[in-house]
């Protein structure tokens, strides 16, 4: 039984993550009065890319070639180390919240290096912007995870999601504050509005798309897949640490099914929220972004101050 649950936990993020992207695209299309592609389109795109030939720049080094594998591997490991639908799974070795933050930083590091590797102006600027954003988002990210870890003194993400602290009145306010802070970081780290435009191919504004501009074929598929995984990882963290409802507490088939359906509902709510944000507001000017990220950090610092 436990083995089956672990297998579901391991493959959940990579199998479901393209669906999230598809759902967001569908909702956005509806907002624009379009029919939109099927929500399964991202799977078809990945399949198509995996079967294409590749073009690699002659300036690229081995960093460019190994980066997609490293980034993808990191998202798989992190995806298996966060609570998704069950909080009783005890993963002691890779679920420390600081570990998750720094493991994700490995992905960012190689993504930015791969962007610089081909020597294109777009890639370089994409890397510079990405590193600026992620450096400033780091404070908010660590502090928001710290806020939920403080009440019980737990650093393990499964333990945090199992303790259900948000239902205690004294912790409700700080955790909601830090949830807002976390949501801002989520938008920044997953390259969403108002930080980045995931649909753009306009060179002047893009961040994430600029870094992967030179990729094609299988490596592009891996990059796209990894960024979908990263999106689902952040959604999973947001929904299960700050709003830990419906997670399976024991290895019971009914509870597991409930956990999965709760997760799917929460994922849908997150996708809806992001699609609404993307459809209703403009991307911010680059130098306004630090202000929002600083708000995230300050909200979290205040939240920590509230926790006694």
């Amino acid at each position: 039984m436990t083995i089956i649950i672990w297998i579901i936990q391991l493959i959940f993020v990579p199998t479901v993550s393209p669906l999230c992207i598809g759902v967001i695209k569908k909702i956005k299309a509806k907002f624009q009065n379009r029919q939109g592609a099927s929500i399964f389109q991202p799977y078809k795109d990945l399949w198509k890319l995996f079967h294409k030939d590749e073009v690699i720049s002659k300036d690229a080094s081995w960093i460019f070639r190994v980066a997609p594998f490293i980034i993808f591997t990191i998202t798989i490991i992190v995806g298996a180390s966060i609570p998704l639908f069950a909080s009783f799974l005890e993963n002691n070795i890779t679920s420390d919240f600081l570990f998750i933050v720094y493991a994700l930083a490995i992905g960012t590091f190689f993504l930015a290096l791969a962007g610089m590797d081909t020597g294109s102006a777009f890639g370089g600027f994409g890397s510079s912007r990405e590193m600026t954003m992620s450096a400033l988002a780091e404070g908010g990210l660590i502090f928001s995870l710290l806020t939920v870890s403080l009440p019980r003194g737990d650093s393990n993400l499964f333990a945090i999601s199992g303790s259900n602290i948000v239902s205690e009145t004294q912790f409700f306010l700080p955790i909601m504050l830090s949830f807002i802070g976390f949501f801002i970081v989520l938008l920044a780290e997953t390259a969403r509005f108002p930080f980045d435009n995931p649909a753009t191919h306009l060179e002047l504004t893009m961040i994430h798309e600029a870094m992967i501009l030179e990729y094609s074929g299988k490596k592009l598929a891996l990059m796209e897949w990894a960024s979908a995984n990263k999106f689902l990882i952040f959604v999973g963290l947001g929904s299960n640490l700050f709003l830990p409802f419906g997670l399976a507490q024991t290895a019971d088939i009914k509870q597991i099914m409930m956990g999965i359906s709760f997760l799917v509902i929460k994922m849908f709510v997150f996708c809806l929220a992001i699609a609404i944000i993307e459809s209703s507001m403009a991307k911010y000017r680059f130098f306004r972004l630090p202000d929002i990220l600083l708000i995230s950090f300050i909200l979290n610092a205040v939240a920590i101050g509230f926790i006694k």
């Binding site: 079967h51 294409k52 030939d53 590749e54 073009v55 690699i56 720049s57 002659k58 300036d59 081909t118 020597g119 294109s120 777009f122 501009l213 030179e214 074929g217 299988k218």
Partner: peptide
């Protein structure tokens, strides 16, 4: 799959 070496865009 074939890998072609090309120029940066």
């Amino acid at each position: 799959q074939k890998i072609k070496i090309g120029a940066t865009w």
